[in-house]
């Protein structure tokens, strides 16, 4: 018994230490508590971020903070460090401070009903960003702003259909999927398959998971190149797998972007560089820069205007020429 207790204590202590040595101040929601709640016309927004687990997320945070400044919105930002209880705490503190609108990216899908009801009772509108919640009662939040992965897959497919519209020959496609079972992988695959399925000349001859990583992307592509001598197109569910595959293609003595056309999703900096260099042919953006859209929505919601229940992040696509222009100002 004693052993078990001490083990528990140890685990607890470790968790506390780990939480403590993060970026400092887990729920620093009260940093600008100057009572700006009601008086002036300036909108106050409480935003609870998931954490800072990736470059994508860091860019997301920056975008929200900067666009709040330009939109003249007073932002109370809180980093939940991947913990739901931190987020719930932050939202409660936003309610107490009587902010005008609350926005957050839920860490997990479920368990939000209670705290969202509190917000509703306090008549503070809620906007979800990037991730959805799994709640029966959709009146608990005003809208959900985020990417549509199926749409991303469709965009990739549409470019391919356009590119090969004059050709009657069979187009052999290989696909590098994301982590098996993850939502982006499933949806990007489905959207792509739906568009190219309309024409029988498009054939997916091999499809494997590359776990969203560069190393796996390269390894799988090496094998594809050997088992399928005639590959026309590669569709990778993210830039990193595409970048790994480019190395494999170069190693096989072929020219990426010419001998094998490459489509990827994400548009991170390294991917855009490869696109500008002509090694990738087309990138579908999955953008973390939803700040400006979020501020627009916030203003509308506070003004009492109707907003659609689902807003898709403004995302674009990049060809090689567009990449050259966009590259210098790429933030992530």
């Amino acid at each position: 018994m004693f052993k078990r207790m001490s083990a528990l204590l140890l685990v607890g202590a470790t968790v506390m230490t780990m939480a403590g040595c993060g970026s400092g101040g887990a729920t620093s929601a009260t940093e600008t508590g100057s009572g700006s709640g009601g008086g002036d016309n300036k909108i106050t927004m409480g935003f609870s971020q998931v954490g800072a687990e990736s470059g994508w997320r860091t860019a997301n945070t920056k975008s929200v903070q900067e666009s709040a400044k330009t939109a003249g919105i007073d932002l109370k930002f809180s980093d939940a460090q991947q913990k739901q209880e931190n987020q719930i705490k932050a939202i409660r503190s936003f309610i107490q401070q009587k902010v005008d609108v609350i926005a957050f990216s839920p860490v997990v899908e479920s368990g939000w009903d209670t705290v969202l009801k509190e917000a509703k009772n306090a008549k503070i509108p809620v906007i979800l960003t990037d991730r959805a919640v799994d709640s029966q009662d959709t009146s608990l939040y005003k809208t959900f702003l985020g990417s549509d992965f199926v749409e991303e897959g469709k965009k990739a497919g549409q470019w391919l259909v356009e590119e090969y519209k004059d050709s009657t020959e069979t187009v052999n496609i290989v696909e590098l999927q994301g982590t098996t079972g993850s939502a982006p992988a499933n949806d990007r695959k489905a959207g792509f398959a739906e568009v190219i399925g309309a024409d029988a000349k498009f054939k997916v001859i091999a499809s494997q998971t590359g776990d969203f990583t560069r190393a796996k992307g390269k390894e799988v592509m090496e094998a594809f190149l050997k088992s399928n001598p005639d590959i026309d197109v590669l569709y990778a569910h993210n830039d990193d797998m595409g970048l790994g595959a480019i190395e494999a293609i170069e190693g096989a003595g072929k020219v990426p972007g010419k001998d094998i056309k490459i489509i990827t999703v994400d548009a991170v900096k390294d991917g855009m560089q490869a696109l500008a260099d002509g090694k990738i042919n087309y990138i579908v953006e999955c953008s973390p820069l939803l700040g400006p859209q979020l501020m627009d929505l916030a203003k509308k919601v506070v003004a009492g205007e109707q907003v659609p229940a689902r807003v898709v992040t403004e995302e674009t696509t990049f060809t090689q020429e567009q990449a050259k222009e966009a590259l210098p100002s790429r933030q992530y």
């Binding site: 098996t180 494997q208 390894e219 799988v220 094998a223």
Partner: peptide, 15 residues
């Protein structure tokens, strides 16, 4: 074995 899975084309769900 890993390479075989890729070249034979075993679907990722059953790898």
């Amino acid at each position: 074995l890993t390479t075989t899975i890729y070249t034979i084309g075993i679907p990722p769900e059953t790898t």
